[in-house]
Design a protein around this nucleic acid. Structure first.
Lengths: 224, 224
DNA sequence: ATTATTATTTAGATACGTCTAAATAATTGT
DNA sequence: ACAATTATTTAGACGTATCTAAATAATAAT
């Protein structure tokens, strides 16, 4: 097997876009779809997709759309791996917040060095998910599936990452803020109070008690 | 003052090359010099230097050479700062060895995020020198001067980073290896034995005794 | 099924960064 | 001081990645 072919920055961005549009499965995606995702013009996509096809990383049939080859998928997964590892690094080691990491990770994911990524992975303690709760592919490209659930639907004893709210009214957000619950936090479900459906949960080493109404408005991402 | 103008990868590389050729002072350097440093052709340098001149980062007079403007120097120092901080990161946190860091740092130095660098600096404990003993410019562009000296010429009590050998014969290198002295190691001069000119030194928490002959063949880089 | 609409591709242009070959300026040797 | 040499620039070309405008294919509507 030859080492991964050299891809330009731009080529890598297209591969990632096609990957994300195809939702990780190898779905065929449209030229216009890619153009929108990349904030570019359809004609540019056609040009690039032809080139990627020559390189053997996508399957392209004019007017019929484009999908990643096996090789293309490997590259996409490697990029996703790098992106998410860097996100963990930024949050855990450099005090970035949940919503600041994407732009920087978008740059860092293009750095080419196998050793760098392997060592970064080790340095971070081989994390399984990124700060948004999304799974980090292994070196070989395997990764766990995750699902999004409301907190009140999650089994006792499992933990997940807070990824969103159902109710985004100011009072609710204020409540979360007061209780130091933020997006990106890992939440462990300790116990359910059957009497009123309330929950005992643990957020960053602090145990708190939340009503069922709160629980049914918080989305967690959990490893399936 | 406006934030730093956007520079492409290529432009940044030229700025750094001009900076290094000018040895940090604002010396005027030749087109051919830059071409050699960059491993490119003189005509390419002329083209780029014209563009950089338009952008106000270099002073360029045809046939007379090129130098950095104050703005160009700021950019160069910022690149050097980033490069060296990343080198420290790679060695201290990711177990890279002395000689593996350059290529990767060369890529990382182009990442654009002020917060990233500030936090990285903090994460590393605000280091003053990189693994090669070269000083790291502060955010404002100031940095300490360093000089290279033979170990036997260094004052007692000072420490420096091992950056080279005068005698590179196999027996000498084998001696260094046996005594766990490697390039990049910080060496502290503890005491000098006046009787035979030998030295007591400390390398990575270990005290050792070396002859004057050894001491006069080891180069240290010390902060002036 | 034919037309209208939308999606996609092609053709030709532009900006960037590079190159080679030719022209011109600066420097060196005698 | 002039010729020879070397350094530098100019002119014209190429590859990458993009764009606009026009042409063509696929899809939807009646």
């Amino acid at each position: 097997m030859f080492g991964t072919i050299f891809m330009t920055l731009s080529e890598e961005d297209y591969i990632k876009a096609i990957y994300h549009l195809g939702k990780g499965d190898n779905t065929t995606v449209s030229t216009n779809g890619v153009a929108e995702q990349m904030e570019t013009k359809p004609s540019s996509v056609t040009d690039m997709v032809k080139k990627l096809s020559e390189k053997g990383v996508v399957n392209y049939r004019p007017y019929k759309g484009v999908s990643l080859t096996e090789h293309g998928q490997k590259i996409a997964l490697s990029l996703v791996r790098k992106h998410r590892l860097w996100e963990v690094f930024l949050v855990e080691k450099l005090n970035f917040s949940w919503d600041e990491v994407h732009e920087v990770a978008e740059q860092l994911e293009h750095i080419k060095s196998e050793k760098l990524i392997d060592q970064l992975d080790k340095h971070l303690g081989f994390p399984e998910v990124d700060p948004h709760g999304d799974p980090i592919p292994s070196k070989k490209g395997e990764f766990k599936k995750t699902i999004k659930k409301l907190l009140n639907e999650v089994a006792i004893g499992t933990s997940g990452i807070c990824v969103g709210v159902k109710d985004s009214s100011p009072p609710f957000l204020k409540f979360l803020d007061k209780n130091k619950i933020a997006l990106g936090d890992t939440i462990l479900i300790l116990e359910k109070e059957e009497f009123d459906g309330s929950f005992y949960i643990q957020v960053k080493d602090i145990k708190i008690h939340i009503s069922n109404q709160i629980a049914s408005n918080l989305y967690l991402k959990i490893t399936a």
